[in-house]
């Protein structure tokens, strides 16, 4: 019996077990980021320093926040194609009203989170495809942003600018911020009891409904959280760039989706990882400019190089998943 018991333990923890494949998949984001860091260190050793990280990860915070925002809707099997222009809209509000008329600014930002919550309700109640609704909304946000700031301009509130340029001792600010965001969302979504219900909505909505929970409430919660993190992302972005532009966040939609997927999330089924998503966002931020500049790749090719990294990581994950399916 002992022999078979140890055989069983081996089957549970061994190299072919689903748990091992899951672990491998969970480590993949960290692994890809490490590889990129090694490449950077090889190309330019001086980049691996307090100052170097502060520079290289400069834009990582807003990207990480936008990625987390996207992750919330992906958890419940939806997709937000408007997060990029929403971040741009928030940036414009922050650089104008939040500075000049703080009360109005706060009301508008809170109102925009309310709009997100209402969209969640609309998508659920009318059974609409979220891709279509949010694609439509992306033009609305962009239009509003252009109305507010037809030309690049505005100025970030001083407190925000000050906060984003904090220089804590020993560890660069972006790394601390990434840790706080990743761990905070991890605890809220992966460890709390209502977090299980939220993720369950993505896994099997009918089962959640039959257990007496409101799917409307879970979807509205997730969309509102997306709105909240979208607002945080836009504010962080303006705090770094100090002035705004209606097109500031346009690239964030796809970056955010890529970050979630790179971080081990899946489009359907409620399988997401907040820590992975933050790492995915950092990887994209690192790969986007510093690495490619060091490699003397002209900016025209950088987007393609970024895409290549994404494909390689996803291919590695597909291989792991195939092993899992081979069981």
């Amino acid at each position: 019996m002992t022999a078979s018991a140890s055989a069983e333990t081996l089957a549970r923890t061994g190299l072919r077990s689903p748990a091992f494949a899951r672990l491998l998949r969970a480590l993949l984001p960290a692994l890809s980021m490490t590889l990129i860091l090694i490449a950077i260190a090889y190309l330019n050793p001086r980049a691996i320093s307090y100052f170097g990280f502060s520079l290289m990860l400069n834009l990582a915070i807003p990207i990480a926040l936008a990625t987390i925002a996207q992750m919330f809707v992906i958890t419940v099997n939806e997709l937000d194609l408007s997060i990029g222009t929403f971040v741009g809209f928030v940036a414009c509000v922050t650089a104008t009203w939040l500075r000049d008329a703080p009360l109005l600014g706060v009301v508008v930002l809170l109102g925009s989170i309310g709009v997100y919550a209402a969209l969640g309700a609309l998508i659920h109640l009318r059974n609409l495809p979220s891709i279509v609704v949010t694609l439509g909304m992306s033009f609305v946000w962009q239009g509003l942003a252009i109305l507010m700031l037809p030309k690049p301009g505005g100025k970030a509130p001083d407190w925000l600018q000050g906060f984003m340029s904090l220089k804590p001792p020993f560890v660069p600010f972006p790394i601390i911020a990434a840790l706080v965001i990743g761990l905070g969302v991890h605890v809220a979504l992966m460890r709390t009891s209502y977090g299980a219900v939220l993720r369950g909505t993505g896994g099997n909505a009918q089962a959640i409904h039959r257990a007496g929970w409101s799917i409307l409430k879970t979807k509205v919660t997730m969309f509102a959280l997306t709105g909240l993190f979208g607002v945080l992302s836009g504010m962080a972005l303006v705090g770094i760039t100090t002035s705004a532009d209606a097109n500031l966040g346009n690239g964030y939609t796809l970056l955010a989706i890529a970050g979630v997927i790179l971080g081990g999330g899946e489009f359907v089924g409620g399988r997401v990882s907040p820590i992975g998503a933050v790492i995915g966002a950092l990887t994209l931020a690192l790969a986007a400019s510093p690495l490619l500049t060091f490699m003397h790749i002209p900016p025209d090719w950088q987007v393609a190089a970024n895409g290549a990294i994404l494909i390689i990581v996803l291919a590695a994950r597909a291989l792991i998943s195939r092993r899992e399916g081979d069981r």
Partner: peptide, 20 residues
């Protein structure tokens, strides 16, 4: 009617509102 993305314990919590 289990959620495949949750653990066995988390699926148990789904049917028990008091497990919080």
């Amino acid at each position: 009617s289990l959620c495949p993305n949750l653990t066995v314990a988390e699926n148990t919590r789904i049917t028990h509102a008091s497990l919080k």
